[in-house]
Amino acid sequence: VTLFVALYDYEARTEDDLSFHKGSKFQILNSSEGDWWEARSLTTGETGYIPSNYVAPV
């Protein structure tokens, strides 16, 4: 499992996005959609889309 960590805070703009804070960790579920990845937050357990340029591999 590849884990990613948030580099910045992000406020969701749609109900499909995940809001998160810098330092939040994610499991990436689908990275084939270009700049928006489907991810599960390891902090909240919620699933949604995150901007790929806001995260980096742990």
Rank of each mutant, 00 (worst) to 15 (best):
F4W: 15
G45P: 01
L7Q: 04
T14P: 02
E38V: 15
H21Y: 13
S24C: 14
K25A: 08
D35Q: 11
E11S: 10
T47A: 06
S52F: 08
L18F: 10
A39F: 03
E33S: 13
L42G: 02
Y49A: 05
S32L: 11
S41G: 03
H21G: 09
G48Y: 04
T44W: 03
V55D: 01
V58M: 12
V1K: 12
N30I: 07
S31T: 13
V5G: 02
T44M: 02
D9P: 06
T47Y: 08
E11D: 10
E11G: 05
G23Y: 06
T44E: 03
T43E: 15
K22V: 10
N53C: 14
E38P: 05
E33K: 14
D16H: 15
S52G: 07
F20I: 03
A12W: 02
D16S: 14
L3F: 12
E33T: 12
E33P: 10
A56T: 11
K25H: 12
Y8N: 06
A39M: 05
L7H: 02
F20P: 00
V58E: 10
G34P: 15
S41Q: 07
N53T: 11
Y8W: 12
L7R: 03
L42T: 07
P57M: 09
L7I: 10
L7Y: 03
R40P: 00
G23N: 05
F20K: 00
E46K: 12
R13N: 09
F20G: 00
A6W: 02
F4E: 00
N53A: 14
S31W: 13
G45T: 03
L29W: 06
V55Y: 01
T14L: 10
Y10D: 00
D9L: 03
A39T: 01
S19G: 07
Y54A: 12
I28A: 02
K25Y: 15
Y8T: 06
A6P: 00
S31A: 13
Y8K: 07
E46V: 08
F26A: 00
V58F: 12
R13S: 11
S41L: 14
G45I: 02
F20L: 04
P57I: 08
L7P: 00
F20Q: 00
V5A: 05
V5R: 04
P57T: 05
K22L: 05
E46M: 10
T44D: 06
S32N: 11
N53Q: 11
E46Q: 12
F26H: 00
T2F: 11
F26M: 06
T47I: 14
A56M: 11
G34F: 09
G34V: 12
P57C: 06
Y49M: 14
Q27G: 03
V58G: 05
T2K: 12
N53W: 15
R40M: 12
F26Q: 00
L7S: 02
S24H: 15
V58K: 04
F4Y: 15
F26P: 00
E46L: 11
D9M: 04
Y8V: 06
H21I: 13
D16C: 15
D16I: 13
R13K: 13
I28N: 01
A12S: 11
G45D: 06
Q27P: 00
G48V: 03
I50V: 09
G23M: 03
W37A: 02
Y8F: 11
E15M: 11
Y49W: 15
H21A: 13
V55W: 02
L7C: 08
D16E: 12
S52H: 07
A6E: 00
G34Q: 12
L3P: 05
L29D: 04
L3G: 03
D35V: 10
R40V: 11
W37R: 02
V55P: 00
G48S: 02
A39S: 02
P57L: 09
Y49E: 03
Y49I: 09
A12E: 03
E11P: 04
G48L: 04
L7T: 04
P51F: 06
V58T: 07
S31C: 15
T14G: 15
W37H: 03
Y10S: 02
F26W: 07
W36S: 06
N53M: 11
A56R: 11
P57W: 05
Q27E: 14
A6Q: 01
R40C: 09
